[in-house]
């Protein structure tokens, strides 16, 4: 039996610093998964993926792809562990990454 299709979100890494970003409903990129657009149909998801190619060509982002999200009481969350970790940061260093609110800040620039 075929599984019902899950909604999807679109992610990439920023070219300049590699930061994980998500496509927003407005067609921009956000570093926060909470601001990601959630596409309910395969067609919408594929269209967003195709639209994002312009930002790849413009060297804003690299490695664009869709991933499954599951609806929940507190809003959607990524289905796979891999995407949960990308959305938060390393599970073994809660002081680092998005979960610490400092993912794009470090080194000399942060000080």
């Amino acid at each position: 039996m075929a599984k019902a299709e899950l909604p999807q979100a679109l992610t990439a890494n920023r070219l300049g610093d590699g930061e994980v970003v998500y496509r927003t409903p407005a067609g921009a990129w956000s570093a926060r998964f909470a601001e990601a657009a959630v596409f309910g149909t395969k067609a919408d998801a594929e269209k967003a993926l195709a639209d994002a190619e312009a930002d790849v060509a413009a060297r804003r982002v690299v490695a664009v792809y869709l991933f499954d999200v599951v609806p929940g009481p507190n809003g959607p969350s990524p289905r796979e562990t891999r995407e949960v970790i990308r959305a938060k940061g390393p599970t073994v260093r809660l002081d680092l990454g998005k979960q610490a609110g400092n993912s794009a800040e470090h080194g000399a620039r942060a000080s």
């Binding site: 890494n13 610093d17 590699g18 930061e19 994980v20 690299v62 490695a63 891999r82 970790i85 990308r86 940061g89 390393p90 990454g97 993912s103």
Partner: peptide, 16 residues
């Protein structure tokens, strides 16, 4: 990609 890899630079989950 092949040029950066030859110099040890990857794109990983969170960053380079």
């Amino acid at each position: 990609r092949p040029l950066r890899l030859m110099n040890g630079l990857y794109l990983q989950l969170h960053a380079y």
